[in-house]
């Protein structure tokens, strides 16, 4: 499965979708994520029914947070298709994938906990590894640790 072909299929199936290809990954706009996920999961050609890995990445210099999804098909034994979603660091909101992939539940909570990405529509978006009173999101690149040497 070439990323370029998937992009063509996505643009044909979902009018007005914003999707670009970067290397082997598809960059999907947050507002189109649910439509794209629904298409990739249900479409007979892809049947990407298994969300393997969901994680955040903080690109501080570029000013955005990225949520990286690796999708596989258990039915067809194909994959991965890499879907990346980018949101600005000052307003990191994107739709939750839980309606399509239950496996996103804990992984999105972890990404929310450590990166502060808000997954809208998540049934139970709370911190999962750190305690509720914790302030900040320690995996962000500009996070200052308590015992860190100050320049």
């Amino acid at each position: 499965m070439k990323a370029e072909d998937i992009k063509n299929d996505l643009t044909a199936a979902i009018p007005g979708i914003q999707v670009t290809v970067e290397g082997e990954a598809l960059i999907v706009a947050p507002e189109n994520l649910l439509a794209a996920a629904g298409f990739l999961k249900e479409n007979e050609k892809y049947r990407l029914d298994y969300l393997s890995c969901l994680t955040g990445v903080d690109y501080l210099a570029k000013g955005h947070l990225e949520s990286v999804n690796h999708l596989y098909s258990v039915e067809k034994k194909t994959g991965p298709v890499v879907v990346k979603v980018r949101v600005p660091r000052n307003n990191p909101k994107m739709p939750s994938l839980v309606p399509f992939y239950r496996g996103a539940e804990f992984q999105e909570r972890e990404s929310f906990d450590l990166f502060g990405i808000v997954y809208e529509g998540h049934p139970d978006l709370r911190r999962i590894l750190l305690w509720d009173e914790f302030e900040g999101h320690p995996m962000r690149k500009d996070y200052v640790q308590e015992d860190q040497d100050q320049p």
Binding site: D49, Y50, V74, F100, R102, G103, A104, E105
Partner: peptide
């Protein structure tokens, strides 16, 4: 169905009868 959509893997997935 629940096993696949919940990203369950390994012996647990196969115990539910999914060949993966």
């Amino acid at each position: 169905e629940l096993a696949v959509s919940s990203s369950i893997t390994g012996p647990m997935l196969r115990a539910s009868g999914v060949n993966y």
